[in-house]
Design a protein around this nucleic acid. Structure first.
Lengths: 211, 211, 211, 211
DNA sequence: AATGAATGAGCGTTCATTCAT
DNA sequence: TATGAATGAACGCTCATTCAT
């Protein structure tokens, strides 16, 4: 997912210049989406921030739908890549790696980008089939990574149990998006959450019996 | 909170026929919001579902903003009332009452109304000050209720600790909104979540030391 | 067709005022269509000529398609009504009535409205199913009227023969649209066409044998 | 007319590869015009069908206007050439040659290209001076050819009379465009039209007195 | 209370055209 | 010759809001 460069639809952006433009467009779109919400993410606003005209914008993205698709793919793949990096870079001991992932995910809530983007994505996926699919893909991948760590920590677990544990862990953390992080609670709350999360998840993983 | 009838913005009737109309309008608005998303929650659609004209709709709600405010207040107070009812109706033993609340909240995710409404609310509150306040009010109340139960379960806890535990519990459950419930995972997942949630939360509450 | 007043789609124009507006809109649309062609018949142009805003125009006609439908219906029914009037008002002798119809149709080519409108209609009906249907309806009615007169002139004709004769007559006259009339040929040409048409059609009708 | 290759607007190549490209462009344009109508005959569509880019298309035709001019010239000259061929190839007897022309023109209505193209042309010429001129040129030539045949059939006719007869004949046939031919009436109707047209035209030509 | 009418801004999209490379 | 990139105007349409009746 991460290597194949943003592959646009059909023709435009075959040169480097076009790729630069497309990146600028998606960056602008992300800014607008995060700062003003999806409702105000209009082609005019995106073009304005990208420093181009609406006509030129539609040259790269003939419809808003395709733009949104690329935007979501880009943002979501960014999160997945980062998580994969964390998993790899955190030593041999499964517990340590699990904790690293949890702490990464929770620390990420300090970025307004994260706390603003995901609720938009969830709302979008309520009524946009495409957004729903992309979102599902990402969370499936995330849960698989977490599930692997869980099985490494407690090899006695059945797959189904491990999957449910991963789902529980993922939900618990995603749910913090709206409540902790910059401007929502004191910094201490986020630290508290990290501690509680790691402890209670590990306990839960170890205690769950294989029956 | 529950008895004081939807208090509209000044002018139109608060009793009798006017109140009936207002309820019809808010019901219609809720339907549209849940079924089609905020973007499509237009005055036209609301009026259509409410069986009145747009002109008449603006007689009751001179702006969409005021309508949204009332709508959110109505829906959110509904959830709070229900939770208060659960807390009261669940016996004397704190653990039982806690479990009852957790199970109510998770079971509620089987209603599409719930899984669709909240992401819209969260996205809305990203950029709408008013929505953010109403949402905050509701979650503060919810966490207070949960905090009380936690303190009843483990009286040794400091207030701050109990508050953080309540926040953690609330986050964990809210996070399930996008992933469990009707049409998202098998029914077994939801049951699994309930079990894990209750067990791990109680464990966490009991184990947390007062230091 | 002529009595049931232009019946709009669903709601708008229930009062006299709305009907007046609709007439103004259709008149404006007809003007633009005739003076500038279908390509330039934009909602903005129509609204401008009608002296209203685009927003108000779309209040009456939620889509250009519905506007076009009403416009074509109005114009075409006008032609049919006029022809029916001519048929009735032209005495008892079949030949005289036939001649009256032919002369009416050809004289009508002196109106720029006519010579400009019909080619637009024909082009439209090439690729617009709806326009094609409306056009077909009108010409079917026209040919039926002509066919009746032909059978009155020569009662020996079989129906199929009379129908083909009516088709031939209709084609011959419609074909003049692009070539005779104001600004296309001298006035004398139009008179000549009338004479030739009447003579040769009557000859053809009388000579066609019933075999 | 047929040999002098499409003479483009000054600059680009008139021989070799350039000519091939131009032919491909005009063929593509004709296809689009006939299959989708003038409104959808956009540079994008033409370039797409011609297998080139819009940028390259505008190299050959710096404006849509010039492309349209060439397109109309090419199509119209094709019809004239064909008619000239028919006139020549149909023996010595004037009546036979006249009939051959009439039958050719009517049989041509079986081609969708014909029945779709001409209404577009007529509508175009309503508001496009240039299209009007080209169209006029073609019909003047057609009527001259028909007029010559008419005078050969009835040498007693005055020129003006013969011209009016030719106009009448031409109109009669052009008028069939919208009503007979593939997909409009049964095949029998077209045969009927041919018979009626030949008979009644010849009758009219012979009977018209020289006074 | 309720309606129909009207506005003006903004939406996503299409298009002919221009231009540097 | 040929391309990709860019523009600016216009398109059909939607929307929240205003208002006379």
């Amino acid at each position: 997912m991460q290597e194949k460069k943003q592959q646009r639809h059909a023709r435009p952006a075959t040169y480097g210049k076009g790729q630069v433009r497309i990146d600028a467009i998606l960056d602008a779109a992300a800014e607008v989406l995060i700062n003003q919400g999806y409702k105000k993410m209009t082609l005019r606003q995106i073009a304005l921030r990208a420093g181009i005209t609406v006509g030129n914008l539609t040259y790269y993205y003939p419809s808003k739908e395709t733009l949104l698709k690329d935007l979501l793919e880009k943002i979501l793949s960014g999160y997945l890549e980062e998580m994969a990096r964390i998993v790899k870079a955190s030593g041999h001991i499964p517990e340590d790696r699990f904790v690293a992932v949890i702490e990464y995910l929770i620390d990420d809530l300090n970025r307004q980008r994260t706390t603003r983007f995901f609720p938009e994505l969830w709302a979008l996926s309520n009524h946009d089939e495409h957004a729903a699919e992309l979102m599902e893909d990402m969370y499936v991948a995330e849960r698989r990574a977490i599930c692997d760590l869980i099985q490494a920590i407690n090899p006695n677990l059945e797959l189904q149990q491990a999957k449910h544990l991963a789902l529980f862990v993922s939900c618990s953390i995603e749910g913090m998006t709206m409540f902790v992080g910059a401007g929502k609670q004191q910094e201490s709350a986020l630290q508290s959450m990290k501690k509680m999360a790691c402890e209670s998840f590990l306990l839960l993983i170890r205690q769950t019996s294989q029956a």
